[in-house]
């Protein structure tokens, strides 16, 4: 039996209050009230008085790990993290963007999150499909057990079954819609480069105008930059105003990386990201 959203919200307020009161953290990243119930905002509590503004419900989908790199190194931060979010935290620790010691992770085991735009359940179809945080200091509810554990890669079957030409036509149709607002990279906890390669002028990798060539360059390179790092939270696709199913490509790359290198992103703080690592016994077969 999963803990109710209301109960998680209460626990979140209590634990965040304790941390802020004891001075263990200088801020807690959580969710606050938006313009209505369905649209909560990422929220930062810096004092005990701020804690009252926190909410937690099925629409609190944003991945708060995205905000960790915004604060100076060494800032003590408490962060509310659902399953995929906790993997993002781990990945950021692996990449030395944050230090484990600077974080207090308030893990949220949760089942039944919903996409506010479509009202569809958020599950293994668009995310990694885990229910329980991989890493945490405090757990804000009981671990979720007994819910179906689905493979996050099942959704790929349809696209994988396509022929090369059909698949290219599929991606061209999807990526041609891109308006280059960069909501995907800005919502992504792993996209912290400044400047992003696509904003560079010398060399200029892709054009600024939202046309096939630049769109393809931007997205393919972004998929590549996230290879072995994407923790499959699905934020990029939820952030996209024109609903490009970016999660499909990220899932495919993640699946291949898992098969080739035997590790999934953001599962252990002792690992190194797959692409800044190697094994002498890696097989040449992966290049075929």
């Amino acid at each position: 039996m999963a803990t109710s959203f209301k109960q998680i919200e209460e626990n979140l307020k209590t634990e965040a209050g304790k941390l802020l009161d004891a001075g263990k953290v200088s801020m807690v990243l959580a969710y606050g009230r938006g313009y209505d119930e369905k649209h909560p905002l990422p929220y930062v509590a810096r004092s005990l008085a701020d804690v009252d503004g926190m909410v937690f419900n099925e629409y609190c989908t944003a991945n708060l790990a995205r905000y960790l790199v915004r604060y100076p190194r060494g800032t003590k931060i408490g962060i509310a993290a659902k399953a995929a979010d906790s993997r993002a935290v781990i990945q950021l620790i692996q990449e030395d963007k944050v230090k484990r010691d600077d974080l207090v992770i308030l893990g949220i085991p949760v089942y039944g999150m919903k996409n506010a735009k479509t009202d569809e359940a958020i599950d293994a179809k668009t995310t990694c499909g885990l229910y329980n945080p991989v890493i945490y200091d405090v757990l804000l509810g009981e671990e979720v057990h007994g819910q179906p554990v689905l493979s996050p890669y099942e959704v790929l079957e349809k696209v994988e079954a396509m022929g090369q030409d059909e698949r290219f036509a599929f991606w061209k149709k999807e990526l041609d819609r891109c308006i280059r607002c960069y909501a995907c990279r800005k919502a992504c906890p792993m996209c912290y480069c400044d400047p992003c390669f696509i904003d560079q002028n010398k060399p200029k990798w892709g054009e600024k105008s939202p046309e096939t060539g630049g769109n393809l360059m931007y997205h393919l390179t972004r998929f590549h930059h996230l290879a072995g790092r994407c923790i499959d939270c699905g934020e990029c696709s939820r952030a996209c105003p024109v609903d490009i199913p970016l999660y499909l490509f990220h899932k495919k790359v993640a699946k291949e990386c898992e098969e080739m290198f035997g590790q999934a992103a953001g599962m252990s703080i002792d690992e190194k990201p797959a692409l800044i690592n190697f094994r002498v016994e890696d097989s040449d077969k992966i290049l075929e």
């Binding site: 698949r167 290219f168 393919l220 072995g228 790359v253 290198f261």
Partner: peptide, 21 residues
């Protein structure tokens, strides 16, 4: 050894995007 991993990913990405492998 780094390149092997990286280029393997490149290959998979090209393939999944619809380019002839």
């Amino acid at each position: 050894l780094y390149a092997r991993r990286r280029l393997a990913v490149t290959k998979k990405i090209l393939e999944f995007s619809g380019m002839e492998p």
